[in-house]
Amino acid sequence: MFSLLRTLWLVFKHAFSPRITVRYPQQVFTLPPRWRGRIILSRDPDGQERCVACYLCAVACPVNCISLQATEDETGRRIPAFFRVNFSRCIFCGYCEEACPTYAIQLTPDFDLSEYRRPNMVYEKEDLLISGPGKYHDYNYWRVAGVKVGGKDKGEAENEMPPVDVRTLLP
């Protein structure tokens, strides 16, 4: 019986405590940087596309909202010919970001996606690509990968020794 009255009093006291509601459209607020919102494709510090079109994100996606096609540019780098995210399907689980070996695909704190027409929710590569490196500023996949691409031969990557001529090891 006393606990009921105490409950009444405690709830009544809340009338004088500040309201926690954030009045969203009028009140601007910042979300934490690791918030899982709109998907972007980032570029490496040199301004080149990070995505190597490995399809891991498309495989990891539980709702199949990512589709892409791999191709090679003139320097020999693998890039996606097209990269398409259907945001009307996306559930913002972040599995694509976890799967990505090159930090290319990232989720951003931008959450207020809305369109009047459903096809407008399908974002193409040019809509997804941003000009910066996103959350990982210094990482450059092609500079650490031991793959020969235009302007960089085998053995010239960071933390990499020049290739060994195996024949010189013969007894």
Binding site: R19, I20, T21, R23
Partner: peptide, 8 residues
């Protein structure tokens, strides 16, 4: 109710 529950 909103006042008691810290809402608007």
């Amino acid at each position: 109710l909103a006042l008691f529950q810290n809402r608007y």
